[in-house]
Design a protein around this nucleic acid. Structure first.
Lengths: 344, 344
DNA sequence: ATGAAAGCGCTAACAC
DNA sequence: GTGTTAGCGCTTTCAT
């Protein structure tokens, strides 16, 4: 491994100057910088990260906490974060935060404390109070995506508004019997998003002067299969059959479309279905959805982090605040006015 | 940040002993170790990664190269790797290797050379010769998953055999008119898996004494939508209609199922469909598939890496070899004997 | 604008 | 088994 001394020798300057020239900190004459860069290039010199980190306290590495890596939403957010951070010369160290309390503790008690990262991005993780304490004690920027916590700088869509928008779309089309596929109670415990979506749904109904009918709620687990099962229940039960379904995720909405088809209902002629997320399969299924641009969320979190790393000082740490992320109703082919005999 | 000196002082030993006690390298009496651990615990001491790396040359960090983070297969492999590595106290630094030649170069020329990782796991990436050279020059273990390269230690399923197995399953059921949805030519260029699957398909046909009919091959891009389109062509074209389809990925197979349904064909009564991968949605669609256990692949790569890090010396580096990964035919509901009038 | 030199916090010989 | 000490390869004052 070629070291800074060799570069210094070849360029005919001191190691201090090489460091300054290559890092861009402190002033160096253009001529010198050019010579140093040439020397570094010709030797194939790359700064040793551990040495640099030890000396400077900076790592150019961000820790990213993710719950389920294999779920489309999370990996998409991660892809956005990763691309943006890489573009700025930052590495990403991945910590998958599972349920396992043992592993979880190790993340917060050890891994994050090894001086390996300059900041932390927590993607849609329900953090315990103690966990937040630990992160705050690290004295480095922490950015959360989703699951707003008053003590953290959080980027999140307004889930109540998202759900209201989806529901209002159905109402505007003339639907009155609208069902909701949302979170099962367990899911809800530590993860607030499902509850908020349900609230938004109910708000929209109430504003339209409609009552919330418990029979038109069906819990599921945010998977295609869960949405499928829930929709089968909603559409198959004798009695009040909904003319529209609002599913709290695109994956569940896709499951609902499949369930409707299997029961012989046409989408959207017999039943309208709307989801939330902006899933890659949405287009294929012609799913109407409220897109929350997950890749962009990841990028924004990365930008917020880069920002915090620049301006953030001990005096002005990353302020705990909530940034609202954009979302947008994308009307495709899974929603339409209810059939004449069902409307009004 | 509490440092090793404070621990040493509190435990009444030298810093060297603290280091030995905590890292497990070199012998320390049980009594001393206990005292050191107690001291470290009570102070909340965690070894500084950069300092430790600088002094020891080890980082306890593995670089993982991934192509498309947001694709199910890759994120699943990554999840497997990540879990296994974390379990052994290793961190993961993620490098997403895209098409962009600029970013790609930076990964191989700079990022991987910063002394930040002890080894590299490359997940299903088509590596250029120059890129492999660069990695080999790093003088650290490199493990590749998929896309066997003779110069790298590679873990991969035998894709020819996988495809043969899927095809033979259809043949054994009595199908004679079997179509294949595989890679489009561009896709094939740097990524050899699709070609191999096609070869396996053709081998199976030939062994059964059947000829390979070009009309029964349809290229697609490994997505649900691509599989859907390809199957529509295959099933919709007048003339020879296949009674079975072998899709080179589960996502394409799912697309094919949906296409068949939309055309009014029943699966498997009118057309059998088999995929490859072991996709999470397979069960939901009752898809018969050849599972290649992607999460397990990730784990095995992690294990191979841990192994290499233990035994691997300069004399005996990770030998370039190909480890064959297990795969298994999982027969579910998307395949059956052809309808009587079509069989024989 | 540049150089000298003192660390950054740990590990690994080497000595005892 | 444990302590002493010399780095690991940088960055950053402090001089000049």
């Amino acid at each position: 491994m070629v070291s800074i001394d060799e570069v210094a020798r070849l360029a005919g300057v001191s190691t201090a100057t090489v460091s300054r020239a290559l890092s861009g900190r402190g002033r160096v004459s253009d001529a010198t910088r050019a010579r140093v860069e040439a020397a570094a290039d010709s030797l194939g010199y790359v700064v040793s990260a551990p040495a640099s980190s030890l000396a400077s306290g900076r790592t150019r590495n961000i820790g990213v906490l993710v719950p389920f890596l294999e779920r489309w939403f999370f990996s998409t957010v991660l892809a956005g974060t990763s691309a943006e951070l890489m573009r700025h010369g930052y590495d990403i160290t991945l910590y998958s935060v599972t349920e396992d309390p043992e592993l979880r503790r190790s993340v917060f008690d050890t891994l994050l404390r090894r001086q390996r990262v300059d900041g932390i991005i927590a993607v849609s993780i329900a953090l315990g109070d103690a966990e937040i304490d630990r992160m705050l004690a690290l004295d480095m920027p922490v950015i959360a995506i989703g699951g707003p916590d008053p003590r953290l700088r959080t980027l999140t869509v307004d889930d109540v508004a998202v759900a209201r928008l989806a529901t209002e779309h159905l109402l505007a089309l003339g639907h009155r019997d609208i069902a909701h596929i949302g979170a099962s109670p367990e899911f809800d415990l530590d993860f607030h998003i499902p509850t908020q979506r349900r609230q938004g749904f109910e708000q929209a109904l109430e504003r339209a002067g409609l009552e919330v009918r418990p029979a038109l709620f069906e819990p599921a687990d945010f998977t295609v299969e869960g949405g499928f099962r829930a929709a089968k229940q909603l559409l198959g039960r004798p009695g009040e059959r909904p003319t529209a379904i609002f599913a709290a995720s695109d994956e569940m909405a896709i499951g609902a479309i499949l369930a409707a088809r299997e029961l012989g209902y046409r989408v959207p002629a017999d039943v309208s279905i709307v989801g939330v997320d902006g899933h890659e399969l949405g287009e294929f299924f012609r799913l109407t959805t409220v897109d929350q641009f997950p890749a962009a969320q990841g990028e924004r979190a990365a930008d917020a982090m880069l920002d915090a790393l620049q301006g953030g000082t001990v005096e002005r740490p990353v302020a705990p605040a909530v940034d609202r992320l954009p979302f947008e109703l994308v009307v495709r082919g899974s929603t339409a006015r209810p059939a004449a005999d069902a409307a009004e």
